[in-house]
Design a protein around this nucleic acid. Sequence first.
DNA 1: CCCGACGGTCTCCAATATAGACCAAGTCTC
DNA 2: GAGACTTGGTCTATATTGGAGACCGTCGGG
Lengths: 108, 108
Amino acid sequence: MFAELADKWSMLILMSLGELGPQRFSELQRAVDGVSRKMLTQSLRTLERNGLVRRTVHPETPPRVVYDLLPLGRELAVLVAPLGRWAEERTELMLAAREEFDRAHADG
Amino acid sequence: MFAELADKWSMLILMSLGELGPQRFSELQRAVDGVSRKMLTQSLRTLERNGLVRRTVHPETPPRVVYDLLPLGRELAVLVAPLGRWAEERTELMLAAREEFDRAHADG
DNA sequence: CCCGACGGTCTCCAATATAGACCAAGTCTC
DNA sequence: GAGACTTGGTCTATATTGGAGACCGTCGGG
């Protein structure tokens, strides 16, 4: 189950919905850096299907579609958030490790 | 940075190293269900390069290569572990949500 | 009358993942 | 001493996935 859930875009979407609250499709696209419409749609469908996210259509023109977290999604968002914070905090250390690794493996 | 780290196999590897302790290549391959040698190698290299995991070669025959967590990797493993537990605990709920979703979207 | 916004879908092509063959060097079996 | 087997990979060929960009209908603005 974990293996089916653990994809980059889904986690970034959960993080965005957790931090910024309910958002519409185009807001998510702006919030989740680098996501294509295709992957955003696909990931949202999967999250919706698994009961993590709710999709609400407001039939106006132009259409307005809002996504927000269901209880299950909020639980996961709460667990995922620390990963995002950790990655941000430890970026420097990891970049330093990379440089060292690359230097060590440059030739021999 | 998070987006570069957040791949399925890396997280599963961290979870395995966190739970079961240091392991050799073939043990990890057995522990991480479904991983190919190629992806295991690649993910381990990335984890090593980022300073999360240490690779130790014992030059015997057949060769013995052991992977274990560095402090940085342990930090992340501690954060990732709850995700695995959550996914396990919530599997039933998610499967139920799926059935409902599929039923609702079967025709209209 | 043409353009843009919205929330997608569709198609085509590039990138990535998987399966499976292959490798060297030593040990075990026959 | 000829094979077979082991380990930790790499390489290649094929399948799957992801991204770029076109397209859609409906409405408002210029």
